[in-house]
Design a protein around this nucleic acid. Sequence first.
DNA 1: AAACAGGCCTAAA
DNA 2: TTTAGGCCTGTT
Length: 288
Amino acid sequence: MQYSPAASAIRLESLKNLDPVKTFECGQCFRWNAEPDGSYTGVAFGKAARVWVEDGEVYISGGAEDYDSIWRDYFDLSRDYEAILDGLELDGYAAQAAGYGAGIRILRQDGWEALCSFIISQCNNIPRIKRIIETLCSMYGEKISFENRIYYSFPAADRLAGLDADELAPLKCGYRAPFIIEAARAVASGALDLDRLAEAGYDRALSELTALRGVGKKVADCAILYGLHMQDAFPVDVWIKRALEAHYPEGFDPAAFGKAAGLVQQYIYYFIRSADKDKIGFDCNRGV
DNA sequence: AAACAGGCCTAAA
DNA sequence: TTTAGGCCTGTT
């Protein structure tokens, strides 16, 4: 269970406030994978890393430099999730989901990677989404050596912008290929400036993103929440829709949760998607 | 075999 | 403004 890396490691957070399994498996990201020893390896912002739990604390490989430049921000460590949860007024179902998902954090991912990944996700399942993304990275990303294995960065938009959609055939991503290329061209040309959009507000971001072919409200909301870091975004997919219809027949207003709406969405998604796995018998009054 | 999967787009009322 | 099909591919 415990992993002792030869290289240096940095403590990220307590397990209570950052549960790697829940955070990586709640559907917000596609490039972190469980290893046989229970740790996770993955790539973000061009850096490969390993995350593991030891004595109730969560660690990441690498030194202070990577932590300062990448991981502190990526794991959203400057937000106090305990305080956010204390301030939330959750009713029965949402409260149960929040109890079950305690430890989930919203990762602050790269905007282009999030946009591209969720274009791929449409009408698709998670194993295939991950397979397509890994193939894309291995074909067009930069090689990264880490712990005697080769990883690949997520390809920059300008790396893909010059490609023809046919060249993505090995991805077997079907009709999504031209969407990927067109989005890459928009970002690479500067016509779509994701850094600026992140500062521009939700309405502007939504209208510019949905102007892309293959990007509707759901995909745009995912890009906005995970890639542009607007934590009040509330992506509604078929699962969330079903859960809300079943438990809030009179309607459901994410705005009631303000800046925590995205987190509440993540709790509900993780809760409903885990239904057949291990949450049978889960008692929200006892916590996790 | 046929339906479905973390949607989106277009055509037709 | 809402609704039905079709879309690549893989899995059940």
